[in-house]
């Protein structure tokens, strides 16, 4: 559909940039990133007569994953101000909102109850999604959709697992004695999914991931990498400290994912008529060095 006036956030990161690039054909696009600061986003929405907001800046992937709850609150406030022209709000969340644990169901569904522990990425996502839900509940004229994107991979990997697959270490960390199922999503497919949600004016929460799942050992094989067994997962404080001093230790969430895996049920989003172009398996093989080290 053409003629939309779209605000895309998080365009200083690859996902937001991919969305903005994609939408440039036939749409008016206002792109904002971290440096804009989100303080004046309400005025911006009014001045530019925005009708669609694609909030791709909820999760910052680099250099370390963080969740921008404040930005999400500002976006929600901007969308709900009186006389606003906004009709669609699409928020790019993450499947990291689901627990990677031994007692989680094997396939995560959108309706699952979530009780993440405090301070985690998942807790931030739950809080941010809470603001988005309140926005939807209080403004029935808005089409509000939350897309929980799987680990962003492909040629510009952003997700923690995809970054490990692509990353510069000689061997791929794996937790000894575990071989979890993982699910990947190509970055361009993620951008297309956000566009699709805006175009169809979807409402509700959807999981988005590449087709299928694959075992971590198989992902390593596809990426032509050897796995390096890490004996135990590191305690969270150690991981945080290691990050601070620049040692690439596994953060707590990644070490949980490398033990128990995290696979989301994508049937609901598929039913809206969206098909990702790259499967999870293809995303893993996209991380193979030969593809980009020419």
């Amino acid at each position: 559909m053409s003629g939309r006036r779209t605000l895309v956030t998080g365009t200083d990161q690859p996902l937001g940039a991919a969305v903005a690039t994609r939408l440039r054909l036939g749409n008016e696009v206002v792109a904002i990133g971290e440096e804009f600061g989100y303080d004046d986003v309400a005025d911006l929405v009014m001045d530019e007569q925005i009708d669609t907001i694609i909030h791709a800046g909820l999760v910052r992937w680099c250099p370390q994953i963080s969740v921008d709850v404040i930005a999400t609150m500002r976006i929600a406030a901007a969308a709900s101000q009186p006389a606003s022209t906004v009709r669609n709000v699409i928020v790019a969340s993450s499947t990291m909102i689901y627990p990677a644990s031994s007692d989680a169901p094997r396939l995560h569904r959108e309706s699952q109850e979530l009780e993440p522990s405090g301070g985690s990425v998942a807790a931030g996502l739950v809080e941010a999604e809470g603001y988005v839900r309140s926005l939807a509940e209080a403004n029935s004229h808005l089409c509000v959709a939350i897309l929980r994107l799987a680990d962003l991979g492909g040629l510009r990997p952003q997700g923690p697992l995809s970054r490990l697959l692509r990353g510069g270490f000689p061997a791929l960390p794996a937790i000894a004695g575990f071989d979890p199922p993982v699910q990947l999503l190509d970055l361009d497919d993620a951008a297309a999914a956000l566009d699709h949600a805006a175009e169809r004016s979807l409402t509700g929460v959807y999981n988005v991931a590449g087709d299928g799942q694959l075992w971590w050992s198989a992902a390593a094989r596809l990426a032509s990498r050897r796995t390096f067994p890490v004996a135990v997962s590191t305690p969270s404080w150690m991981g945080l400290f290691a990050h601070r001093i620049g040692v690439p230790l596994l953060d707590p969430d990644t070490s949980d994912t490398l033990r128990f895996g995290r696979v989301a049920d994508t049937a609901k989003f598929e039913a809206t008529g969206f098909t990702p172009t790259r499967s999870s398996t293809q995303c893993a093989s996209d991380a193979r060095p030969s593809r980009y080290n020419k």
């Binding site: 396939l107 699910q183 991931a209 087709d211 299928g212 989301a264 049920d265 994508t266 049937a267 609901k268």
Partner: peptide, 9 residues
């Protein structure tokens, strides 16, 4: 939606 998801192997 009850049909099988493509998320499964």
């Amino acid at each position: 939606v009850t049909r099988a998801s493509r998320a499964v192997a």
